[in-house]
């Protein structure tokens, strides 16, 4: 079922990290936005399989949207409004109340993921970015199981922060990709350094360089490091990205505001090298 539904998707990129809170969702969001921005006709989807802690709706500023049912399956929420080139799906859209907890054991999570893959009307997509929860457990195994027939289109990106504790989990994550034979496009080091807004001094809040070192040792492509960008943190954390009255023809204010951040430029390079390695593969 999943294989049939996703036949119209060209590339599926799974964003992984062993550890929580290293910025998987923010990297997934940035990846989706950068890919979206790469061409005026490209179509991107983002699927949030972090079932007990979905962050994607908040980050795209589509917190209060709901998913609609059509005769052809669930209609995803389009973050760019009428253009309908950026489709999002998350369990967050299915909750009655934002504060409701989703307390599910493995088999129920597995069922939900199967539905996400087989019942969502993604349509033609150039890229489907999948944001995952921390760890290497039910969600990850289910994803790969259901998408096994599409194996040639699957690839992954690993996100880490520079601390030893995070790198250790990133290594576990890499062992996981090797065990399930999932190609890794590269490693991103997030939160490497913080620029003091007052004096411009760069502090290595979570140390630095560990990601690059790990990439070298494990012969992975190092996609780049992203410093802590408070502008980006605030942008993805605020639900009202419209900024009030300025509802002009520009129906996708999040993208415009993202383009103004320094992270956008850094990430554009990362996205380019991801697209490049997908073209080769």
């Amino acid at each position: 079922m999943a294989a049939k539904r996703l036949e119209t998707v060209k590339h599926i990129i799974i964003v992984l990290s062993g550890k929580g809170g290293v910025g998987k969702s923010s990297v997934s969001t940035q990846l989706a936005l950068s890919l979206y921005n790469s061409s005026p006709t490209v179509r991107v989807g983002i699927l949030d399989v972090d079932l007990t802690g979905p962050s994607i709706p908040r980050m795209f500023g589509v917190d209060n949207h709901a998913v609609h049912q059509s005769s052809d399956g669930w209609v995803p929420v389009y973050a760019d409004g009428a253009q309908a080139r950026l489709a999002c799906m998350s369990v967050g859209f299915l909750l009655k109340n934002k504060g409701d907890s989703v307390v599910w054991r493995g088999p129920k999570k597995n069922g939900m993921i199967r539905q996400f893959l087989s019942d969502v009307r993604w349509g033609e997509l150039d890229y489907l970015v999948i944001d995952t929860p921390p760890g290497t457990s039910d969600e990850h195994l289910s994803l790969l199981e259901h998408m096994a027939p599409l194996h040639s289109r699957l690839s992954s990106v690993i996100v880490t922060t520079p601390q030893a504790v995070a790198l250790m989990d990133a290594m576990k994550c890499l062992s996981f990709t090797r065990a399930v034979n999932l190609p890794v496009l590269g490693l991103i080091e997030n939160m490497s350094g913080y620029v003091c807004p007052c004096c411009g001094e760069i502090s290595n809040v979570f140390s630095t360089g560990g990601g690059q070192e790990m990439a070298r040792r494990e012969e992975l492509r190092f996609l780049g490091n992203l410093p802590v960008d408070t502008e980006l943190v605030s942008l993805l954390d605020a639900s009202d990205v419209g900024g009030g009255a300025e509802k002009s023809a520009d129906a996708f204010p999040l993208l415009a505001r993202y383009q103004a951040t320094t992270s956008c430029k850094l990430f554009a390079e990362i996205a380019t090298s991801i697209v490049g390695s997908l073209a080769v593969a």
Partner: peptide, 12 residues
């Protein structure tokens, strides 16, 4: 420490 534990719920 590099080994991944790929376990579903019941094993955990």
């Amino acid at each position: 420490s590099h080994d991944a534990i790929m376990w579903r719920g019941p094993k955990k």
